[in-house]
Amino acid sequence: MSDHAEPHIAPLKTYLNVFAALMVLTVLTVWVALFDLGPFNVVVAVTIATVKAYIVILYFMHVKYSAKIIWLTAAAGFVWFILMLALTLADFATRGWLPIPEPW
């Protein structure tokens, strides 16, 4: 287990590039909030935040260089969160679509 045992050490440049990308996306999210996109304001804001989170997870948190099981565990948390969010909002968004039946 000699060559496999060594952890991947990312070059300094990778970290600086990730940092620069995070800064650009931060400026972008503040700038884009100045425009009225209606309901898409929150969609754009969350999309940019998700891209930022994704590159932090891949590079700063080394998931890109980690074993598949780490990738799976990291993804599981977020998948379950999206499930919780989607199903809960589906409930709240559709309340009142059907009339409440008259009591007998």
Partner: peptide, 13 residues
């Protein structure tokens, strides 16, 4: 990263 746009940037336009 998620808290910042959801709390501070709701209504800037």
């Amino acid at each position: 990263i998620f808290l910042f746009p959801l709390l501070y940037l709701v209504w800037r336009h």
